[in-house]
Simulated scan of single mutants.
Amino acid sequence: METQANIDYNRIAEAIEYIRQHFKDQPSVEVVAEKVHLSASHFKRMFTQWAGTSPKKFLQYISVEHAKRMLQESQATLFDTAFETGLSSTSRLHDLFVRIEGMTPAEYKHGAKNLQINYSFAESPFGPLIVASTSKGVCYMAFEEDEQKALQNLLLKFPNAVFQQKLDLLQQNALFIFQNDWSKLPEIKLHLKGTDFQLKVWESLLKIPMGKLSTYGRIAGEVGSPNGSRAVGSAIGSNPVAYLIPCHRVIQSSGTFGGYMWGTTRKTAIIGWEGVKSQSAI
């Protein structure tokens, strides 16, 4: 049974998909509202409640031209200067609190044999998700409407693990990221199954500040493989932890958003939502 939050997100996602397809026309609120079969006033109210800003302002965050400007602005600063300025109180960026630990070679080789994994289902601003954790940290998070399919995908990731449906503190800490107030956000610990190169790429993604974007080529340079954009793209596409490892912040060098494991509409929604949140935190 769908929750009201899920119903609202699906309606907003429909609007965002229309905006994504027609951003060059800069459609008015009235036009978008008509496409999702709502009155302009009702649509504006629902959208603002979800995103924290008006549909018009949100459109600015997800246009290609805005993406290009964000890339240009972050060219020289990216993450280094983020340590130097403004990271206090509610303006702190969640990336500073995410820590990655790779699984041991034995755990990796044997498909997490005998590893105890807790999992639970939760709601987010971007639809239902599944989150799973070991005793060391969150090992998996994915957006998925169908709980049975979500669980099956988790089992495929760790074919030899022992599973229990249980919401634990590690998962709760991770889910706090979707709350508006990050001033008391605890450190989020991840326990990931990946090659050395994948872990290196995922750690690089954590250095992209919220509200900023990067490109595959730039990430390749940062991990010491300037000609390895394709390998970087493959590693990004293998990201096992949705949102917490922000692969959604990597776009094409042209400024277009490109693909996303959990859907291009969801990627667009996340980029716009983060743009709004990062501005409101200043």
Rank of each mutant, 00 (worst) to 15 (best):
residue 84 E to V: 13
residue 149 K to C: 05
residue 168 D to S: 13
residue 203 E to H: 15
residue 124 S to K: 05
residue 275 G to K: 06
residue 141 M to H: 01
residue 102 G to N: 09
residue 104 T to Y: 10
residue 16 I to M: 05
residue 208 I to E: 01
residue 265 T to R: 01
residue 282 I to A: 15
residue 82 A to L: 10
residue 13 A to Y: 00
residue 73 E to R: 12
residue 241 V to I: 13
residue 59 L to G: 08
residue 3 T to I: 09
residue 58 F to N: 04
residue 91 S to F: 02
residue 51 A to Y: 06
residue 249 R to I: 03
residue 4 Q to A: 14
residue 53 T to D: 14
residue 167 L to T: 12
residue 60 Q to C: 10
residue 35 K to E: 09
residue 154 L to D: 07
residue 265 T to G: 03
residue 244 L to I: 11
residue 21 Q to C: 03
residue 75 Q to W: 04
residue 155 L to K: 15
residue 29 V to E: 09
residue 261 M to W: 01
residue 115 L to M: 10
residue 223 V to E: 03
residue 220 A to F: 05
residue 37 H to S: 02
residue 282 I to D: 15
residue 83 F to L: 11
residue 137 G to F: 07
residue 28 S to D: 08
residue 136 K to W: 03
residue 44 K to N: 14
residue 134 T to E: 11
residue 26 Q to H: 13
residue 234 S to K: 11
residue 216 Y to K: 00
residue 74 S to W: 00
residue 125 P to R: 05
residue 227 N to I: 01
residue 91 S to L: 03
residue 150 A to H: 06
residue 118 N to T: 14
residue 156 L to H: 08
residue 227 N to T: 14
residue 28 S to Y: 02
residue 212 K to M: 12
residue 124 S to N: 09
residue 109 K to F: 09
residue 126 F to I: 11
residue 219 I to H: 00
residue 244 L to V: 11
residue 63 S to G: 15
residue 148 Q to Y: 01
residue 271 I to P: 02
residue 21 Q to V: 06
residue 222 E to A: 14
residue 131 V to S: 03
residue 96 L to K: 10
residue 42 H to D: 15
residue 115 L to I: 08
residue 183 S to Y: 04
residue 28 S to I: 06
residue 163 F to T: 04
residue 18 Y to S: 10
residue 94 H to P: 11
residue 64 V to M: 07
residue 278 S to G: 07
residue 33 A to I: 07
residue 45 R to N: 13
residue 63 S to P: 10
residue 214 S to T: 15
residue 157 K to P: 00
residue 131 V to H: 04
residue 48 T to H: 02
residue 41 S to L: 12
residue 90 T to C: 11
residue 21 Q to A: 13
residue 219 I to V: 13
residue 63 S to Q: 15
residue 183 S to N: 10
residue 222 E to F: 01
residue 246 P to S: 12
residue 159 P to A: 14
residue 127 G to V: 13
residue 151 L to Q: 06
residue 180 N to Y: 12
residue 52 G to H: 08
residue 205 L to F: 08
residue 33 A to W: 05
residue 55 P to A: 13
residue 71 L to K: 07
residue 156 L to V: 12
residue 208 I to T: 11
residue 236 I to L: 08
residue 43 F to C: 09
residue 156 L to E: 13
residue 17 E to C: 02
residue 112 A to F: 08
residue 234 S to V: 08
residue 235 A to E: 02
residue 183 S to C: 10
residue 194 G to F: 05
residue 146 D to E: 10
residue 78 L to Y: 05
residue 121 F to R: 03
residue 86 G to P: 02
residue 106 A to G: 09
residue 154 L to R: 03
residue 248 H to R: 02
residue 212 K to C: 15
residue 26 Q to R: 12
residue 229 S to A: 15
residue 142 A to D: 11
residue 254 S to N: 12
residue 123 E to F: 07
residue 248 H to N: 06
residue 205 L to C: 06
residue 6 N to V: 14
residue 253 S to H: 05
residue 52 G to Y: 10
residue 14 E to N: 09
residue 163 F to I: 08
residue 112 A to H: 06
residue 277 K to C: 08
residue 275 G to V: 01
